[in-house]
Structures are given as C-alpha cells and as structure tokens.
Simulated assay, not measured.
Amino acid sequence: MNWRLILTLIIVSGVMAYLGDVLGMRIGKKRITLFGLRPRDTSRLITAITGMVISIAILVTMTVISENVRTALFSMKFIQGQLQSLTRELQESRSESQLMSLTLLDSEKRLREQQEGLISVQEELAMIQPRLEEAQESLSRIQKEKEQLEFEKAALTDSVESLKDESETLRKGLIQIRSGRIAVFAGEILGQSAIEPMSNRDDVEGVFQELRRQAEYVVGARTGLSPDEIVLAVDLEKEMEAIDACAGQANRKFVRILALANAIFGEDIRIDYEVKESFLVYRKGEVLFSQSVDRESARYDPESELHLMLRLVNRKAIQDSIVPDPVTGKVGALDATDFYEAVDILQKSGGRVNVEVSAAEDIYTEGPVRITLSIRPEDGEIQRED
C-alpha cells in the first residue's frame, strides 16, 4: 500500500473541505448572491464547487505523486490496447506453446519409438554379429579355396596342355611305330663298354668315341643308312662330366650310351651316357641255377620248363646286381638254336634229369649274362653241355 499517497489525499481532502466550509459560511453570513441566486442557493453552489475543487485537488495530487495514477488517467486506453494486444499475443503464444508441446510430445514419442527400434536393431545386430563374423570367415576361407582352385585349375590346364602335347607326340610316335619308321626307342641301349681302373683321359675319350661308332653302326644297320649319315646329338658338357667320372678312377667302370627319346628315320638321335661302378658278379663256370626235371610228369613241357628256368636266372642275376636292359628288363639272351637243341634233348631224355645254368665267362655288373646249359641225368651221364 502507498501510505504516503493515502495520507496526502486525506489531508488535502480535509483542508479543502475545511476551506470550502469556511468560504460557504462567510458567503452565507454576508448574504452574497451569485448569478441572481438566493444566498442559500449560492451557498449550495459554492459547496458543490468546493467538492469539485476537492476532487480536482485530489486528482492533481495523485497525478503529481503517483506515476501509476498519471498512467491510469492519461494512458489507460493505450495500455488497454497494449494489454489486449499482449493478451492476443499471449494467447497465440500459448497456442503455439501447446502446439509445440504436442509436437514435442509427438517428437518424444517418435524418438522413444526410434530409440526402441534402435535398441531392437542393436540387439538384432548383436545376434547377427557372430553369424556375420562366421560368414566373413567362411567367405575368406572360400576365397582362399577359390584361389587354390584357380591355381590348381591353372596347373591342371598346364598339365592338360602338356598331356595333350605328350599325347600328340605319342600318337605321332605310335603312327611311326605302326608304319615301321622308328629308328631307336627311348631308353634303348645303343652300346656299352667297360673302362679299366686307372685309365688315362685319352683312353677314356677313345672308349667314348668307340661307343658313338657302335651307336652309329647299330642305327645304320636298322635304317639301312650309312653310319656316316647317322647324327648323334649329345650334350657336350654332360659328355665331359661322364669322361671325368671315368678317367683315373681306382675302380672299374662301365659306360652305356642310351637313346633319350624315340627317333624316326632321318632324325637326329639324342643320346646320353650312363656311368656306373663295375665289379665281378659271376666267375666263369659258376653255377647260376640248377633244377631237377621229371620227364615222366604228366604236366611236363620241356619248352615251358626251360623258359621258366631262364626267367629265374634273369631274376637272380638282377638280384645279384647285374644291371638289366632298361627297355626289355633282361640281362642277357640265349641263342635260339641252343635253346631249341636243349628243348629237343629234354624231350628225348627219359626219367629225371638235372639242368644246370652256368656262367660262360666272367660276368661283371654291366652284363650281358652269357650262359651254358648242362643237361645231366641224375645218374651222372652227361646228355648235353654247351
């Protein structure tokens, strides 16, 4: 409460009422008339004017003392207009605020839904993550397997191409074989010779030259060409290595000249040298095999029996370190005449006979195994020996 304003209004009202009363009494005593009125009416008019002056004085006092009263008296309509405008703006603000509140609630709801969806997605992602890692590992493994398969495919492609080339070569070789135009076969021995211990290099080179001449004569005899027309293709570096391996050695060596590949008539013949240790395996006259044969047996077949014995001798010789022919796998051969003479003797013999296979000469590692057949009755009488 504004006590100063209230006290001021009471005092001013009292002073003005007092002054109006004094002025009215004086005018009434003097019997003054205004505007042709009677004194009583004049007194009443003065009293009314005094009340008006009191009101004016109160308003003036309030206006002077209170800024709020001045505002209420002189700016009320402006303030009311501002209040109405502010009220409208407030209402609009409240509406906007409510709308924003609703929008915010809707946004919060959507945000909660999005958060819930995000949580659900995160949970699903957490569940999928191990499978994703497993799938990545499987993909990596499959990628490696794919690369391996591609590498194997490339290798197989190369192998297939190589096999095709080899097949074509074999096909051509087969055609040549069928047409009888093969001069030498791969791995075939074209000549061999022994080299004695401590041979000097010149002697060894002479042996190698002789081996080449042997090879030329062998091929020339097959093809009908002159040995001078036969061309032997050899790696000179390997030939020098083979000569070095034989020259000045304390042990006996043997050298074989081998065909590296099939060659048709007129082609150069690729050759290589095989150098191995040579030592005495069988001495002359040493019995290599002995078997008793019963002529009276129901299953007796002298030719088959003799073939079987020779195969057994061949096997035994290989087991005893004789180096076989790489193409035929045999270590020697028996003359057909000698073979069938022995068969004839076995057919004509009666009872049990003993067949001995002996070394015809000293036989070394390189062979060949030359043999003699001795057919004796078990009573000791010699039927045949050659």
Rank of each mutant, 00 (worst) to 15 (best):
V64Q: 07
V313R: 04
G191P: 00
L73C: 03
T47K: 09
L59P: 00
L308T: 14
L19M: 12
K109V: 09
L90R: 11
A72H: 10
I257T: 04
D379L: 03
G173C: 07
S159G: 06
A186D: 03
I264F: 12
F35D: 10
M62E: 04
D320K: 04
R88D: 15
G332D: 04
S162R: 15
V343P: 00
E239V: 04
I371Y: 01
I264Y: 11
G332V: 03
I119L: 10
Y217K: 10
R376D: 10
A298Q: 12
L59D: 01
A57V: 00
R201L: 05
R94Y: 13
E67Y: 08
E188Q: 04
Q347S: 11
V231C: 06
N68W: 15
S140H: 13
R94S: 14
R256S: 05
I363S: 02
R270C: 06
V69K: 01
T8H: 05
L118N: 11
A186S: 12
K29G: 13
G14N: 03
S13N: 12
R181F: 06
L346P: 02
V64M: 10
L104Q: 13
V323Y: 09
E161F: 05
F208D: 01
F279P: 00
I195T: 02
V357T: 02
V353G: 03
A48W: 08
S179K: 09
G14Q: 03
E305H: 07
F289H: 11
I182Q: 07
I182H: 03
V353A: 05
M52R: 02
D344M: 03
E145Y: 04
I56R: 00
R370A: 14
I119W: 06
S66N: 08
F339I: 02
M1N: 12
Q82F: 04
S358E: 05
I79Y: 05
L308P: 01
E305I: 08
S140T: 15
K276C: 12
E92T: 10
E124L: 06
K172Y: 11
E239G: 01
K146R: 14
N354E: 15
A261M: 07
T328F: 02
R311M: 13
Q84K: 08
N262Q: 06
A245C: 05
L73W: 07
E305K: 08
S107M: 14
S304F: 09
R38F: 11
E216H: 02
G285K: 05
R70F: 11
L149K: 08
G329C: 01
A359Y: 07
I177P: 00
Q319P: 00
I375T: 02
K30A: 15
G117H: 12
F35H: 01
I257M: 12
I128S: 13
R252A: 09
D41H: 09
G173L: 12
P302E: 06
